[in-house]
Write a protein that binds this DNA or RNA. Structure first.
Length: 225
DNA sequence: AGGAAGATCCGCT
DNA sequence: GCGGATCTTCCTG
């Protein structure tokens, strides 16, 4: 990767995927490590790529906010129990898809939700899919938005992210901002787990979906590697 | 067979 | 800030 996106154009589609080792770690570790990595999707319509700037960790079966809470194992959650490096996509609110990375080890239903991405390539295609201008920040600053922009949906359920050429993560540029932690968003139903700071995002990145809500809970800063 | 809820987004006030 | 959109999945009876 170039040091900045102002360098020569990168052939994102040809980048080597992150290997299974990346995903085969505790979910909080992967959620933190995913910040700054690249998400790439190659489709018939074109190539979309971006830097991951916001994630959340879901640690079933004990995590009440996780779909795999209590060991729940259904058609929908089945892939969460699969090999680390698989993609878990699900459909919510009758209209939105969400992308997760399966982590840890087979049988451990833990996953990282990708909540926001900073677009680097395929902006025109993303804009077309989203019905927005390519310069619009709403292109990819939310979990449902980025899936629509990248053209991700049911067909990608269970896809192996370690395979090259289609849908995968790749090593991001070295330079990154601080990473902050805060409580996860939209899990008011998860009594006892609401306040866990399992959301990670780059400080001062305009593509992050929202600033940490509670000005009271000081988002704790984490060293960037 | 039916109902309820949902890891969201958008537009309006 | 609030409510509506919209439909799949899962649980209950």
């Amino acid at each position: 990767m170039p040091r900045s996106s102002a360098d020569l154009p990168v052939d994102f589609a040809a980048l080597p995927p992150l290997e299974r080792d990346f995903y085969a770690r505790p979910v909080l570790t992967v959620a933190r490590a995913a910040i700054g990595q690249l998400l790439v999707h190659v489709s018939a319509e074109g190539v979309c790529a971006g830097r991951i700037v916001e994630t959340e960790a879901y640690r079933g079966p004990e995590d009440r906010a996780a779909h795999s809470y209590g060991g729940r194992r259904t058609t929908r959650t089945e892939v969460m129990y699969g090999a680390p490096g698989l993609a878990y996509l699900y459909f919510v609110y009758g209209m939105h898809w969400q992308l997760n990375l399966v982590t840890t080890r087979e049988g451990a239903p833990e996953a990282v939700l990708i909540r926001a991405v900073e677009p680097l390539a395929g902006l025109e295609l993303m804009a077309e899919r989203r019905g927005l201008a390519p310069s619009d920040r709403r292109l990819t600053n939310g979990p449902g938005k980025l899936c629509q922009a990248f053209g991700l949906q049911r067909a990608h359920y269970g896809h192996d992210l370690t395979l090259p050429g289609t849908l995968f993560l790749a090593a991001g540029p070295r330079r990154r901002g601080r990473v902050l932690r805060s409580p996860r968003i939209g899990i008011d139903y998860a009594e006892g787990w609401i306040d866990k700071p399992w959301r990670f995002h780059e400080a001062d990145n305009p593509w992050v979906s929202r600033r940490p809500s509670g000005s009271n809970d000081p988002a704790r800063s984490v060293r960037s590697s």
